[in-house]
């Protein structure tokens, strides 16, 4: 990547994610980059974005970036704070959430994601990851899901070691067969570009690259033979305002 860019790749990924969020959506947010993107979107083009966190904060409007999913900042600035049965059973399960944001340690070409283990033996893994949290049901029930993770051959793999959350399974029809009501992943946003599932095959396809990134670079960082759209667009450069706001938010998480 060119060293002349005025932003780093994490900032680009965060800003690209924030632009996907639309005003008045109900969005289920996790901690880290999804939170930064959501708070940024609320301060820019989507002031009415309705944020729900699994800790029970409903329509919250944080001004600084929470370090954890249940920070006081989220509770104090929420319309209401409810118990977890209400979040998972009444908000998420019936399909009230428009968009869920998820991270992943590994992802495959059908956007199935793994956050549980690295290694082939569940009982004796090479690396133990945190596990499922809210992700399987978020992936299952939201109208659409956006996955955010950095591009690398170790993360974008032919076969993930454990299906923690189902994307499109083994292709068209898998979600329905598994009993999932939500639409599944609509985009995967990385530090290099944006992948979207092919409408026919459900296979992730490169549709957009960030400024300064080449298609080859994305393919090199993907372990499977990545499909590329016939016309790949380039993400609009981050504006000065977006960059300033992202940097302030990241700095605020440890205050």
């Amino acid at each position: 990547m060119s060293s002349e860019l005025k932003w780093n790749s994490t900032e680009m990924m965060t800003i690209a994610a924030s632009r996907i969020l639309q005003n008045e959506m109900i969005c289920f947010v996790g901690i880290g980059i999804p939170s930064t993107a959501a708070i940024l979107a609320k301060s820019m083009h989507a002031p009415e974005l309705f944020l729900v966190y699994e800790s029970g904060t409903v329509n919250t409007n944080p001004q600084k970036l929470p370090l954890s999913i249940g920070d006081g900042e989220l509770a104090n600035r929420a319309l209401s704070v409810v118990g977890m049965p209400e979040i998972f059973n009444y908000w998420l399960q019936p399909g009230r959430i428009d968009m869920g944001f998820l991270g992943a340690a590994q992802i495959d070409k059908f956007a199935n994601i793994n956050t549980t283990i690295i290694g082939s033996d569940y009982k004796n893994p090479k690396v133990r990851l945190p596990g499922a949290g809210g992700a399987p049901e978020i992936s299952g029930a939201c109208k659409e899901v956006v996955v955010i993770l950095k591009h690398s051959p170790r993360a974008f793999v032919e076969k993930i070691d454990f299906i923690t959350s189902l994307g499109f399974g083994s292709g068209p029809g898998s979600r329905k067969a598994a009993g999932l009501i939500g639409g599944g992943p609509s985009a995967v946003i990385t530090d290099l570009g944006v992948l979207k599932p092919d409408p026919e095959s459900c296979e992730l396809t490169l549709v957009q690259i960030h400024p300064g990134v080449t298609v080859e670079e994305v393919k090199e960082n993907t372990s499977w033979d990545l499909k590329v759209a016939s016309s790949v667009t380039v993400t609009g450069e981050p504006t000065q305002v977006e960059l300033e706001k992202v940097r302030l938010l990241v700095a605020s998480s440890r205050n």
């Binding site: 549980t116 049901e137 299952g140 959350s165 189902l166 979600r175 009993g179």
Partner: peptide, 13 residues
């Protein structure tokens, strides 16, 4: 009863 764990490897583990 819930709608959950669908399609995941948690179901078998």
């Amino acid at each position: 009863v819930l709608r959950g764990y669908d399609g995941t490897d948690l179901l078998s583990n």
